[in-house]
Design a protein around this nucleic acid. Structure first.
Lengths: 117, 117
DNA sequence: CCCGACGATCTGGCACTGCCAGGTACTTGA
DNA sequence: TCAAGTACCTGGCAGTGCCAGATCGTCGGG
């Protein structure tokens, strides 16, 4: 009857936050999928897989928030580099706000119990 | 191309957090759906609808995290009161942890930009 | 006396998105 | 030659928020 994951993050909780995370990681710094997965894992999203990140990047590109270009590598397969667009920048700021609002609202509900975090 | 909602909360971001919120609101205090919706709206989830909350309560009951009982009202339709179970209590604590972990991890990614919050 | 407003609940179906499984391809080193 | 690491993509499943619509009870006003 576990609705929340024991270790790592709950898949449901990640929803919506992932788009913001990717826009954040790409803000002012071009990068490719495989590297973004590694950076997210380092940030604490240990059990995140490529199957989650690649479709998310495609969605953001289709939505016009990211641009991509293929870069051939001499050591290994080609990489698809993603850059944030002007629309993506705007969405990123909006996303930061939405996330902050959510965290605040949730905190307002959780508050009574824990003085600690 | 808006992926994040402008006003209120992003639907995707709410996912997973809602179960925790309901368990929190019912911790040590029996309540019914319509009232829970009102309390959540007060907490900042302004555009939350009954169509979101009722199914969520049913899911939690089916998962054994909540019990319910029907209470006839002399002024209006009957109310379905929900109480948290022992399993629900345990899941609530786990959920708090999962949420805190997620917020921390996201903060680690957003950090560079905002000194505030 | 009826009808709208409000309180209160429930459901079907759609849309979105995380995730699993599997597949492709290039390079290096054993 | 073959495994392992890098790098990408996709189909389909599952979970869940949300919209729309329906039902039922009570009460007050026209």
């Amino acid at each position: 009857m576990m609705v929340f994951h024991v270790a790592g993050h709950d898949p449901q909780m990640l929803k919506g936050a992932l788009s913001l995370l990717l826009l954040e990681l790409l803000a002012g710094r071009e990068d490719y999928g495989y590297s973004l997965v590694a950076r997210l894992r380092d940030a604490g999203f240990a059990d995140l897989t490529e199957g989650t990140v690649y479709p998310a990047l495609s969605r953001l590109r289709r939505a016009g928030l990211l641009d991509s270009r293929l870069v051939r590598s001499s050591s290994g397969p080609a990489r698809t580099y993603y850059v944030i667009t002007a629309a993506g920048e705007s969405e990123r700021r909006r996303g930061r706000g939405a996330w902050a609002t959510l965290v605040d609202s949730v905190a307002r509900v959780l508050e009574p119990e824990g003085a600690s975090s």
